[in-house]
Design a protein around this nucleic acid. Structure first.
Lengths: 230, 230
DNA sequence: TTTCGATGTATCAGTCCGATACATCGAAAT
DNA sequence: ATTTCGATGTATCGGACTGATACATCGAAA
């Protein structure tokens, strides 16, 4: 879960823990304010499993600190800091970089079935946020899996709402929840339609040969990001 | 959190663990499928703190008798021990009953400020489901607190969405999230309005003219009655 | 008769959260 | 000039919730 989010960010560029948190909050919006109590242990797990490497960034390049971007190496693992003597020592940081193994793990997590459990919304949202790393068929599968999930929930919700022994507030809660789910489904339908348009732009033929066989290929990372649709 | 849900159910009538789970799922809808790994420890905590008492309903002794005629009355869906042949060996159950102390704890939890953190929706929904146990002012405060929370989130969401370096999927996710939040706020506004109507139904017998100047427009102090148990 | 699903209680490892601690840095306030 | 203060940065701890699993009884279908 959190591993997926971290690897997804590190996939683009290396960064340190605090910035991972910042990006999760400011860019993805999921994990509104991820706790350090989960972030740092997760980074440790990833390091222990070989998915990321960490380089201690002690002191170098004192003047130019772009803070955003800057794939600068700074791989000098000097640990000469902390001795009180202030000789250009920058603040200690641990810069994390994804490995090939980590990239494989990322794909595996991203394509894996999301849990149907408690925070399914978060799990789905996270995968959608990284959907550009999925093969087109994988994207479609993700969207349709989510749609089925919500449809299922809607059915049980309706059963519940049909009970007429609920008080005003609970009833309003259930009804609003149902509406929200319907809203979500409509949104998903739009996404699915757009996705199908993208995959079969002008062809009306019948060569829809169920590409759900082996959605995984080496070129699954074709980052075709036409930044302009709305 | 879970304690609040449990106490809220036990407030109405006594029941055993499995049924608490069932009701949470079928009636409230929150805690879609609460795990026994949280439910049973929570019940143990409540028992240890004296908020509930437990009577083991097992074995051949049918001495355990409702005795709470009016409130719970006949336990509705009780699989009656029909066909008296099976008077022995009832399946072992632990029936939980709320105490006065538990009722006090319930009110305290219900009126307490909900955490602004991760699962705020659940926390709010839970309180709304038990809103009938709140004083009118407490209900209004709950709704307005939630409204403020969502408004705040909307502001930060907009800041995020204004960033234009997001890819199609992430952007769609953020936009949909914003819409959902707006939908929630509109719903809350309806609830708040209804609540105000309920609290000030007097003098409405006369002309329903709209010229009466919005009595709660500048009312920033709608709910500053701390420690006001119902 | 056996199988099977629902009921029922319980524990475990793992994940995530909120609070807290500590330290450095830049800039505003005094 | 010095203090103060908020942002940056890493880290740990207790607690709450989850999913998996285990065990047992019951009613009804196969």
């Amino acid at each position: 879960m959190l591993e997926l989010a971290i690897l997804g960010l590190l996939f683009e560029q290396e960064m340190h823990g605090y910035e991972i948190r910042r990006r999760l909050r400011d860019e993805l919006g999921l994990f509104a304010n991820i706790s350090f109590g989960s972030l740092y242990p997760a980074l440790s797990r990833l390091e222990r499993s070989g998915a990321v490497t960490v380089t201690e960034s002690g002191g170098a390049a004192p003047a130019s600190i772009p803070a955003t971007g800057s794939l600068g190496g700074e791989r000098a693992g000097l640990r000469a800091r902390r001795s009180g003597a202030t000789l250009g020592t920058k603040r200690s940081r641990k810069v994390y970089r994804i490995t090939d193994q980590g990239r494989a793990l990322f794909e595996q997590l991203l394509e894996g079935e999301e849990p149907a459990g408690a925070d399914d919304a978060r799990s789905f949202g996270l995968r959608l946020a990284f959907a550009r790393h999925l093969a087109p068929s994988g994207r479609l599968a993700l969207l349709e899996r989510r749609r089925a999930q919500l449809t299922r929930r809607l059915a049980t919700d309706l059963v519940r709402a049909s009970g007429d022994r609920l008080d005003v507030y609970t009833r309003s809660l259930v009804e609003h929840s149902t509406e929200s789910t319907e809203h979500d489904i409509a949104w998903l339908d739009r996404l699915i339609e757009a996705e199908r348009q993208k995959q079969a732009p002008a062809r009306t033929d019948s060569t829809r040969s169920t590409d759900l066989g082996d959605p995984h290929a080496g070129d699954a990372m074709t980052s075709t990001t036409p930044s302009g649709a709305s």
